[in-house]
């Protein structure tokens, strides 16, 4: 028998692996939207030549990696903890001899592993085979990219955990999640490369964790900027967000009112 947290990671993977049709449907959606986005960006870049360092292959690569990373990073749709607080099922989670945040992180990493295999690699391969693609020039980039994706998942988990933990105070987090759904994609560089933003916006975003979600791993893959510096920033955000999550959870659990008898 494995130690608890690795076992939870496996369970996180297995949980998603049990829904094959949903995986396929999601994959198809990602690819269709990828085609649309690739067409739009290609139109812009072919008209203007290079935009902020993005030529055609770099733009295409940016789109397909981004499409693949959506599910890996799970930008939207994680309301599990909030739902459990709302229904009171969180008593079960708090009544287990584990570190709840670590347990949820382990489960989320397992989920992300499934997403890398089935939601990141296929669209990326699809884009790489059918479009001009910018492959890494240095072999080490592959390792750095893997690490950056891992950190992006942790940063995303940290943000989602905080959003969800607000349920200890708000009970209903739909509003919070909806706002995040709108701003998250834009600020993290999913919608457009952050390099295309005005200089002041880029300057502000540099001090937020959002670029660490999408822009960072894509930059590492396409070898824009200093990869080690990007990874270091991601790491700092990952640690800060996890620590903030622990504090919030401890406070939230202390004022917990268990719903539903």
């Amino acid at each position: 028998m494995l130690a608890p947290y690795p076992q939870l990671m496996v369970a996180g993977y297995r949980r998603y692996a049990s829904y094959r049709q949903a995986t396929l449907a999601g994959l198809a959606t990602n690819v269709v939207f990828g085609l649309l986005r690739a067409a739009v960006l290609a139109a812009v870049v072919t008209q203007r030549g290079t935009v902020a360092g993005y030529d055609l292959p770099a733009s295409i690569t940016y789109v397909w990696l981004g499409q693949g990373l959506i599910t890996v990073v799970m930008l939207w749709g994680d309301q599990e903890l909030a739902r459990r607080v709302r229904t009171g099922d969180v008593v079960i989670d708090l009544g287990r001899p584990w570190d709840l945040q670590a347990a949820m992180l382990a489960t989320d990493l397992g989920r992300a592993g499934h997403a890398v295999a089935l939601r990141l690699l296929p669209p990326a391969a699809f884009g790489a085979l059918l479009f001009p693609f910018r492959w890494p020039e240095r072999p080490t980039t592959w390792v750095l990219f893997a690490a950056s994706v891992g950190l992006a998942v942790v940063v995303s988990f940290g943000i989602r955990f905080l959003l969800n933990a607000s349920a200890f105070w708000l009970l209903d987090v739909r509003g919070v999640i909806a706002v995040w759904g709108v701003v998250g994609g834009v600020l993290s560089g999913l919608v457009l490369p952050l390099a295309w933003f005005p200089a002041w916006a880029q300057a502000v975003l540099r001090w937020t964790p959002f670029p660490a979600l999408f822009q960072s791993p894509i930059d590492v893959f396409t070898e824009r900027g200093d990869a080690v510096g990007v990874l270091a920033t991601q790491l700092v955000w990952a640690v800060l967000l996890l620590l903030a999550g622990r504090t919030v959870l401890a406070r939230g659990a202390g004022r917990l009112v268990v719903q539903g008898g």
Binding site: A3, P4, Q7, L8, R15, W98
Partner: peptide, 23 residues
């Protein structure tokens, strides 16, 4: 009225997880 089992997994895997969590 609540469940401590993992909804999407086979029952025995919930037991395995439970065993692991409790070491």
């Amino acid at each position: 009225q609540r469940s401590q089992l993992w909804w999407d997994l086979p029952l025995v895997e919930s037991f395995d997880l439970h065993g692991a969590i409790h070491r």
